[in-house]
Protein backbone atom coordinates (compact mmCIF):
# COMPACT_ATOMS: atom_id res chain seq x y z
CA UNK A 1 0.00 0.00 0.00
CA UNK A 2 1.37 3.39 -0.94
CA UNK A 3 0.20 6.86 -0.10
CA UNK A 4 -0.40 8.99 -3.18
CA UNK A 5 0.56 12.65 -3.28
CA UNK A 6 -1.50 14.01 -6.18
CA UNK A 7 0.59 17.18 -6.52
CA UNK A 8 3.95 15.43 -6.32
CA UNK A 9 4.64 15.76 -10.05
CA UNK A 10 3.92 19.48 -9.90
CA UNK A 11 6.33 19.85 -6.99
CA UNK A 12 9.09 18.05 -8.90
CA UNK A 13 8.39 19.74 -12.22
CA UNK A 14 10.32 22.99 -12.44
CA UNK A 15 10.06 23.76 -16.11
CA UNK A 16 8.57 22.63 -19.40
CA UNK A 17 11.65 20.47 -19.82
CA UNK A 18 10.37 17.95 -17.27
CA UNK A 19 8.69 15.59 -19.71
CA UNK A 20 8.60 12.27 -17.88
CA UNK A 21 5.12 11.71 -19.28
CA UNK A 22 6.64 11.24 -22.76
CA UNK A 23 8.14 7.94 -21.52
CA UNK A 24 6.52 4.93 -23.17
CA UNK A 25 8.18 2.50 -20.78
CA UNK A 26 10.14 0.62 -23.44
CA UNK A 27 13.10 -0.01 -21.11
CA UNK A 28 15.90 1.04 -23.48
CA UNK A 29 17.21 3.50 -20.84
CA UNK A 30 17.57 0.75 -18.25
CA UNK A 31 19.19 -1.57 -20.79
CA UNK A 32 21.93 0.88 -21.77
CA UNK A 33 22.60 2.49 -18.37
CA UNK A 34 26.33 2.12 -17.63
CA UNK A 35 25.60 2.08 -13.90
CA UNK A 36 23.16 -0.79 -14.45
CA UNK A 37 20.43 1.12 -12.64
CA UNK A 38 17.32 -0.86 -13.45
CA UNK A 39 15.04 1.52 -11.57
CA UNK A 40 16.28 4.65 -13.24
CA UNK A 41 14.85 6.43 -15.05
CA UNK A 42 11.64 4.83 -16.26
CA UNK A 43 10.34 3.33 -13.01
CA UNK A 44 11.38 6.33 -10.97
CA UNK A 45 9.64 8.73 -13.36
CA UNK A 46 6.52 6.55 -13.27
CA UNK A 47 6.52 6.84 -9.46
CA UNK A 48 6.66 10.63 -9.85
CA UNK A 49 3.81 10.64 -12.34
CA UNK A 50 1.71 8.40 -10.08
CA UNK A 51 2.41 10.59 -7.06
CA UNK A 52 4.24 7.81 -5.18
CA UNK A 53 6.44 10.20 -3.23
CA UNK A 54 7.58 7.64 -0.61
CA UNK A 55 8.79 5.28 -3.32
CA UNK A 56 10.91 8.02 -4.85
CA UNK A 57 12.33 9.17 -1.52
CA UNK A 58 13.33 5.65 -0.46
CA UNK A 59 15.36 5.40 -3.67
CA UNK A 60 17.38 8.57 -3.14
CA UNK A 61 20.72 6.76 -3.63
CA UNK A 62 19.58 5.76 -7.10
CA UNK A 63 18.70 9.36 -7.96
CA UNK A 64 22.21 10.52 -7.09
CA UNK A 65 23.97 7.49 -8.63
CA UNK A 66 23.01 8.64 -12.12
CA UNK A 67 26.11 9.86 -13.97
CA UNK A 68 24.07 12.26 -16.15
CA UNK A 69 26.17 10.78 -18.94
CA UNK A 70 23.20 10.93 -21.30
CA UNK A 71 23.62 7.43 -22.76
CA UNK A 72 19.94 6.71 -21.99
CA UNK A 73 18.85 9.99 -23.54
CA UNK A 74 20.86 9.35 -26.72
CA UNK A 75 19.04 6.04 -27.10
CA UNK A 76 15.55 7.09 -25.95
CA UNK A 77 13.03 6.69 -28.80
CA UNK A 78 10.53 8.99 -27.07
CA UNK A 79 12.83 11.99 -26.65
CA UNK A 80 12.53 12.13 -22.88
CA UNK A 81 14.82 14.76 -21.28
CA UNK A 82 16.13 12.15 -18.90
CA UNK A 83 19.15 14.02 -17.52
CA UNK A 84 17.15 17.19 -16.90
CA UNK A 85 14.39 15.14 -15.27
CA UNK A 86 16.94 13.53 -12.95
CA UNK A 87 18.32 16.97 -12.09
CA UNK A 88 14.79 18.09 -11.26
CA UNK A 89 14.44 15.17 -8.85
CA UNK A 90 17.76 16.10 -7.25
CA UNK A 91 16.69 19.72 -6.92
CA UNK A 92 13.49 18.57 -5.22
CA UNK A 93 15.36 16.27 -2.82
CA UNK A 94 18.00 18.87 -2.01
CA UNK A 95 15.25 21.31 -1.04
CA UNK A 96 12.63 19.09 0.56
CA UNK A 97 14.63 16.23 2.05
CA UNK A 98 18.11 17.55 2.74
CA UNK A 99 17.01 21.17 3.32
CA UNK A 100 20.09 22.50 1.54
Amino acid sequence: MSLVNPVFVDEVKRSGEFNANACMNCGVCSAVCPMGIELLPRKLFRYVLLGLQDKVLENRETVYSCLLCGMCEANCPAGVNIAENVRSLRYYMNKKVFKI
Partner: peptide
Protein backbone atom coordinates in the same frame (compact mmCIF):
# COMPACT_ATOMS: atom_id res chain seq x y z
CA UNK B 1 27.84 9.78 -29.57
CA UNK B 2 27.43 6.46 -27.76
CA UNK B 3 30.60 6.75 -25.70
CA UNK B 4 30.69 4.87 -22.39
CA UNK B 5 31.02 7.11 -19.34
CA UNK B 6 34.27 6.86 -17.33
CA UNK B 7 32.25 6.85 -14.09
CA UNK B 8 33.86 10.08 -12.88
CA UNK B 9 30.66 12.00 -12.16
CA UNK B 10 29.83 9.47 -9.41
CA UNK B 11 33.16 10.03 -7.65
CA UNK B 12 31.99 12.62 -5.15
CA UNK B 13 29.20 10.44 -3.73
CA UNK B 14 29.96 6.84 -4.73
Amino acid sequence: RFTLCCGGPAESLF
